[in-house]
Design a protein around this nucleic acid. Structure first.
Lengths: 154, 154
DNA sequence: CCGCACATGAAAATAAATTGCATGTGCAGT
DNA sequence: ACTGCACATGCAATTTATTTTCATGTGCGG
């Protein structure tokens, strides 16, 4: 991860305060849930995870909205169907996603060296790019390997 | 566009038949609506557009599901919130999206030269990539230009 | 420690997505 | 062209997701 867990909350506090938003137990709960999760979480999923803490569903929607507005999270398409939220940099190191057409898994790809390519794409279109999100579709390492079995040459 | 409109439907027929699915008026209606739309359409939007044709909402869900399963469409995140569907190659030339943080518009980027970078990313992870979808976040050409006004040097 | 503005919960309303089942229809086989 | 079957569809109902309203609670500046 990009920042120590112990520092992450301090960074969140700072980020919230910059935007004149309050540091509340609910916001910290959602933040911790996202920090601990290996994958993006939808609001209904967050509701399940945080049912003990008694967070109401409307509050969850409001929190992920706030988090996304101030760049703490960003929404991603999960299962090709529902919207999940995951932490952005610097809370979580940047990565892209491979949606495996074989097993349906979403694999995080970390060794992504697309920043310059993205910047160029932006320049070509007179845009100012500050964030990119790539979704690849194909076969994950496991499924790609499995598909080799019984195949003479690809 | 990648294929002539007149050929597009023939290609759709072929694609459906390959998968042993039927060519129906409803499927053609949805296909035409997507072909004519400049942007991804959600199911509720499709329902509005096609209310005259009398397509029921459940049918629309089933059709976009089928279309996505056979690679005719793919889902994209619209407005950071809802899922829309747009035609894939060869029905529509490949492009990526810039979500403008200034005005909220989604701009299509066509001069995308990321295929090789994507392929490399796939190789690095032992994956077999056959499609990529990039979502950039930043300022579109208009908003970027506007932000220059009153700025001494960037 | 006070007070105000923001944050939250509860309940309700709205919208979106799914399911079951009976009917309709594309299309393969004749 | 005709027939039959399996797939496609509509309808109604259900479930799930999301938004809104408003009264209450609470972080945090002064």
């Amino acid at each position: 991860m990009s920042v120590l867990n112990s520092d992450a909350e301090a960074l969140l506090r700072e980020r919230l305060q910059t935007h004149e938003l309050r540091v509340t137990p609910n916001r910290l709960s959602v933040f911790r849930a996202l920090l601990q999760s290996a994958r993006p979480l939808s609001v209904p999923e967050l509701a399940t995870h945080l049912s003990d803490d008694g967070l109401s569903v409307p509050t969850l929607y409001r929190i992920v909205e706030v988090f996304s507005a101030i760049g703490v999270t960003h929404p991603v398409l999960v299962d090709h169907q529902s919207v999940g939220y995951e932490l952005r940099e610097p809370f979580r190191s940047h990565h892209d996603h491979l949606v495996c057409t074989g097993c349906g898994r979403v694999v995080d790809l970390y060794n992504c060296d697309l920043t310059e390519a993205m910047a160029q794409l932006g320049r070509d279109n007179q845009c100012r790019v500050n964030f990119h999100q790539v979704e690849l579709h194909g076969l994950c390492a496991d499924c790609a390997a499995a598909s080799q079995v019984g195949t003479a040459r690809g």
